[in-house]
Amino acid sequence: EPLWIRPDAPSRCTWQLGRPASESPHHHTAPAKSPKILPDILKKIGDTPMVRINKIGKKFGLKCELLAKCEFFNAGGSVKDRISLRMIEDAERDGTLKPGDTIIEPTSGNTGIGLALAAAVRGYRCIIVMPEKMSSEKVDVLRALGAEIVRTPTNARFDSPESHVGVAWRLKNEIPNSHILDQYRNASNPLAHYDTTADEILQQCDGKLDMLVASVGTGGTITGIARKLKEKCPGCRIIGVDPEGSILAEPEELNQTEQTTYEVEGIGYDFIPTVLDRTVVDKWFKSNDEEAFTFARMLIAQEGLLCGGSAGSTVAVAVKAAQELQEGQRCVVILPDSVRNYMTKFLSDRWMLQKGFLKEEDLTEKKPWWWHLRVQELGLSAPLTVLPTITCGHTIEILREKGFDQAPVVDEAGVILGMVTLGNMLSSLLAGKVQPSDQVGKVIYKQFKQIRLTDTLGRLSHILEMDHFALVVHEQIQYHSTGKSSQRQMVFGVVTAIDLLNFVAAQERDQK
């Protein structure tokens, strides 16, 4: 057995438009009618409502009807409940999964919650491996369901041993009777949507819809739904939504950006999952974080739909894509998950301010006199920076000697690579993860907040409520011999709460 199987392995699926269902090699399930009293909570997966979006479509000038398939009504709160249950049931049916076995899954959280929910009911041990950027709410729900959680670096490539995929496979090879159901490759993922989600949409719309818009992560949702719609409703256009920084969209030119990270969760990847059939997507749109969270908040405030950030991405694209539809036509959007997962993220004004998705003037509360002053007023001194090749031991000596707790790590040209902190280095040394002679590049981390000289002290204040420091950066445009230009970030300084307090105190003292 291989040590790991690539999540982007070539698909062996034989589905073709027009091929009889009787030739399918898979076990198919028909939607079942729910009894009045459910035998367990797993029976509350599927049969989610279709809700008309009344205000947002009109606000953006849509002539067509805009409908939302509300997947956050599933038992675990997301569309991923469907595939989690289906993968477990299919693994039980073919004898792969037996009582007492362990389920391991690399996930952005929602599939993990679905699997942990099913594992709690069915009696399996469950280990979820997820990147650090995923919300604390997801972690809390997983723990409450009895799952064990392993976190991995957000910026690790999918084929790196440190990625959530790599760590999951390492655990599988170490733990007896453990299984990775593997949402990236498992046919049960798109089949769950082909058999149930798509049929529900067709039934709820009486077979009449002209466009379907869905955000894409593993691709199982859009693949399964689109294949069924292509068979039953061939005139329906399928629109895929991919965040900026991901590479799922086609044509490839759409993916060209210097951005590699994004805040919206559960969609987009740096590889093409095996289950994603991009041939059934008629057109791709890219979405960005700001519009995703703005539209998610709009869905909550104006439509009462308590959905997550990827739902915002989907609707932001839908109001663009559906401009081509006329009166009497219908566009369906998939709202994948609930706001429950993001209470401390985009639902929080403070978080939105820190990330730059909300401006101070958007909030009406009274601010102190210094709130709208610029960061450049602080008069920061030149920063202490270190090269990635310097040793951890030497870096600790320098920081202690100069009285700093942290320093930016830059390359020879001064471009920011990340940050090192005294606390992080000492804990890594004590844990045996690094040696004093190791290069400081081994303990770089990139989960820090950046701020510009033109940003306000109010925004800085919000950042420092949650973080010990902020890195002050400025952009530099560099022209190359080819005539092309590129933008790079340079370090201007490091600012802490002490710097802000000293500035405010000094100004008030001078005024007296």
Results as ranks from 00 to 15, higher is better:
Ser381Phe: 13
Leu358Asp: 08
His468Lys: 12
Leu430Val: 13
Gly483Asp: 15
Lys286Trp: 00
Leu373Arg: 08
Ser485His: 04
Ala292Gln: 03
Leu501Trp: 03
Gln326Asp: 13
Asp270Thr: 05
Pro251Gln: 01
Met343Glu: 04
Arg452Thr: 05
His372Cys: 15
Phe271Ile: 01
Thr364Ile: 14
Pro388Ala: 13
Val473Trp: 07
Val473Leu: 08
Ile444Gly: 13
Gly432Tyr: 04
Leu457Gly: 05
Thr364Trp: 13
Glu263Phe: 07
Lys355Cys: 04
Glu397Thr: 12
Gln329Gly: 14
Asn424Glu: 13
Val386Asp: 02
Asp467Glu: 15
Asp455Ile: 15
Gly418Ala: 11
Ser428Phe: 13
Ser310Gln: 03
Ile334Ala: 05
Leu299Ile: 09
Gly441Ala: 14
Lys433Gly: 08
Arg340Ser: 02
Val443Tyr: 15
Gly403Lys: 10
Met352Trp: 00
Gly393Leu: 14
Val494Ile: 12
Ser287Gln: 07
Leu276Cys: 06
Pro383Ala: 08
Phe448Leu: 14
Asn255Gly: 02
Pro251Phe: 01
Glu401Gly: 13
Gly268Gln: 01
Lys449Cys: 11
Leu453Cys: 12
Ser486Pro: 05
Asp349Trp: 02
Thr344Pro: 04
Trp351Ser: 01
Ile498Lys: 12
Phe469Cys: 14
Glu361Thr: 14
Leu347Trp: 02
Glu291Gln: 14
Pro243His: 03
Gln476Phe: 15
Lys359Met: 13
Ile267Leu: 03
His468Asp: 09
Ala311Glu: 04
Gln450His: 09
Thr261Cys: 09
Gly441His: 06
Met298Lys: 14
Glu290Asp: 13
Ala413Glu: 13
Gln302Trp: 14
Ile239Leu: 03
Thr482Phe: 15
Leu464Glu: 06
Lys355Phe: 13
Asp455Lys: 06
Gln487His: 13
Lys449Asp: 15
Leu457Met: 15
Tyr269His: 08
Ser338Cys: 07
Asn341Phe: 00
Leu429Thr: 08
Ala413Gln: 15
Leu417Pro: 13
Asn341Met: 02
Gln323Phe: 15
Thr395Val: 12
Gly393Gln: 11
Gln354Glu: 12
Leu453Pro: 15
Leu363Lys: 10
Val375Glu: 05
Ile267Phe: 02
Val440Phe: 07
Asn424Phe: 11
Thr385Leu: 11
Glu401Tyr: 13
Asp362Ile: 05
Glu365Asn: 05
Gln376Trp: 09
Ile398Cys: 03
Lys433Arg: 13
Trp369His: 05
Trp284His: 01
Ile477Phe: 15
Thr421Lys: 14
Glu412Pro: 14
Phe357Gln: 05
Gln256Ala: 09
Thr385Tyr: 03
Ala249Ile: 05
Leu347Asp: 01
Ala296Cys: 05
Leu363Ala: 06
Pro243Ile: 02
Glu327Ile: 05
Trp369Gln: 05
Glu327Val: 07
Ile239Gly: 06
Arg330Val: 13
Met343Val: 08
Leu399Met: 12
Ile334Lys: 02
Ile398Val: 08
Tyr342Leu: 06
Val375Gly: 06
Thr385Gly: 11
His468Pro: 15
Lys433Glu: 12
Asp349Ser: 08
Phe503Lys: 03
Thr260Gln: 13
Arg452His: 13
Lys449Ile: 07
Phe285Tyr: 14
Leu378His: 06
Gln507Tyr: 10
Val315Ser: 07
Leu353Gln: 10
Cys331Phe: 01
Val415Thr: 15
Phe469Ile: 09
Thr454Tyr: 12
Asp510Glu: 13
Glu397His: 12
Ile390Leu: 14
Leu373His: 11
Gly312Gln: 01
Met343His: 03
Tyr342Pro: 01
Glu397Cys: 07
Met298Pro: 09
Phe295Met: 14
Ala497Tyr: 10
Gly493Lys: 12
Arg330Gly: 03
Ala382Ser: 11
Glu412Ile: 15
Asp289His: 01
Leu299Gly: 03
Ile451Asn: 14
Phe295Asn: 06
Leu417Asn: 11
Ile267Val: 08
Gly458Trp: 11
Glu291Phe: 09
Ala301Asn: 12
Leu363Gly: 12
Asp337Cys: 01
Trp284Asn: 00
Lys442Ser: 08
Lys446Glu: 15
Leu378Asp: 02
Leu325His: 00
Gln406Tyr: 09
Phe295Val: 15
Leu299Met: 09
Gln435Ser: 12
Phe404Asp: 03
Ala249Val: 02
Lys359Asn: 15
Leu373Asp: 10
Met298Thr: 13
Val472Ser: 11
His394Ser: 06
Leu347Met: 07
Ile444Cys: 15
Val495Ile: 15
Ala470Val: 15
Glu265Pro: 02
Glu265Tyr: 00
Arg400Ser: 08
Gly483Arg: 15
Gln259Asp: 10
Tyr445Val: 12
Leu471Gln: 10
Val319Glu: 08
Ile498Ala: 12
Asp270Lys: 05
Ala318Met: 02
Asp455Asn: 08
Ile451Leu: 13
Arg340Asp: 05
Val415Tyr: 15
Ser287Phe: 08
Leu363Cys: 13
Gln439Asp: 09
Phe469Val: 09
Gly403Ser: 14
Val415Ile: 14
Tyr342Arg: 01
Ala505Asn: 09
Pro388Thr: 08
Gly432Trp: 06
Val375Ile: 14
Val386Arg: 02
Thr257Ser: 14
Leu299Cys: 04
Asn288Ile: 15
Arg330Asp: 09
Val504Asn: 12
Thr294Asp: 05
Gly312Ser: 00
Ser246Thr: 04
Val315Ala: 11
Arg278Gln: 05
Leu384Cys: 09
Glu412Lys: 14
Met425His: 07
Ile451Lys: 10
Leu248Met: 07
Leu417His: 15
Asn288His: 06
Glu365Ala: 13
Pro273Arg: 00
Arg350Gly: 12
Pro336Tyr: 02
Val409Ser: 06
Ser287Lys: 08
Ala407His: 05
Gly418Phe: 09
Leu422Asp: 11
Tyr445Cys: 09
Glu377Gln: 11
Gly266Ala: 02
Ile300Gln: 04
Ala292Leu: 02
Phe503Tyr: 06
Ala497Leu: 03
Lys283Met: 10
Gly403Thr: 10
Glu377Ile: 08
Ser437Gly: 14
Val315Phe: 09
Leu276His: 01
His372Thr: 13
Asp499Gly: 01
Ile444Glu: 12
Val410Asp: 10
Gly245His: 01
Leu501Pro: 03
Glu303Ser: 07
Glu244Trp: 09
Ala322Glu: 02
Lys320Leu: 11
Gly356Val: 02
Trp371Leu: 08
Arg488Asp: 05
Phe357Val: 01
Gln256Met: 09
Arg297Asp: 02
Lys320His: 04
Ser481Arg: 14
Phe295Pro: 11
Asp510Gln: 05
Glu465His: 06
Glu465Phe: 03
Asp242His: 01
Asp349His: 07
Glu291His: 05
Ser486Gly: 12
Glu258Ala: 07
Asp411Asn: 13
Arg459Val: 07
Val241Asp: 06
Asn424Trp: 12
Thr454Asn: 12
Val319Trp: 01
Val504Gly: 14
Ser287Glu: 08
Thr391Gly: 06
Lys442Pro: 14
Phe404Ile: 13
Gly458Met: 08
Leu417Ile: 14
His474Val: 12
Thr482Tyr: 11
Asp289Phe: 00
Arg509Glu: 15
Gln511Thr: 14
Ser287Cys: 15
Pro383His: 05
Gly414Ser: 14
Met466Phe: 15
Tyr479Leu: 15
Ala301Val: 14
Gly423Met: 06
Leu429Asp: 12
Glu258Gln: 14
Val473Ser: 13
Thr454Ala: 04
Val472Met: 15
Gln435Gly: 12
Ser246Trp: 00
Tyr262Leu: 03
Gln450Cys: 13
Glu397Trp: 12
Val495His: 08
Ile396Ala: 06
Phe295Trp: 14
Pro243Met: 08
Thr389Lys: 14
Phe357Leu: 08
Lys355Ile: 03
His462Tyr: 15
Ser428Leu: 12
Ala318His: 01
Gln406Val: 02
Leu460Cys: 05
Asp405Ser: 09
Lys283Asn: 12
His462Lys: 15
Ile238Cys: 05
Thr395Ser: 14
Lys366Ala: 14
Asn502Met: 11
Gln507Gly: 13
Arg374Ser: 12
Ala382Cys: 04
Val339Ser: 06
Leu276Glu: 01
Glu253Thr: 09
Phe448Gln: 11
Leu453Asp: 05
Leu422Asn: 09
Gly403Arg: 14
Glu250Val: 08
Ile247Leu: 13
Phe492Val: 15
Met419Phe: 15
Trp284Asp: 00
Asn288Ala: 13
Leu430Ile: 14
Gly393Val: 13
Arg374Leu: 12
Pro436Asp: 15
Leu353Gly: 06
Gly423His: 07
Gly418His: 13
Cys392Trp: 11
Pro273Met: 00
Pro251Tyr: 02
Val264Met: 08
Phe271Cys: 00
Ala470Cys: 05
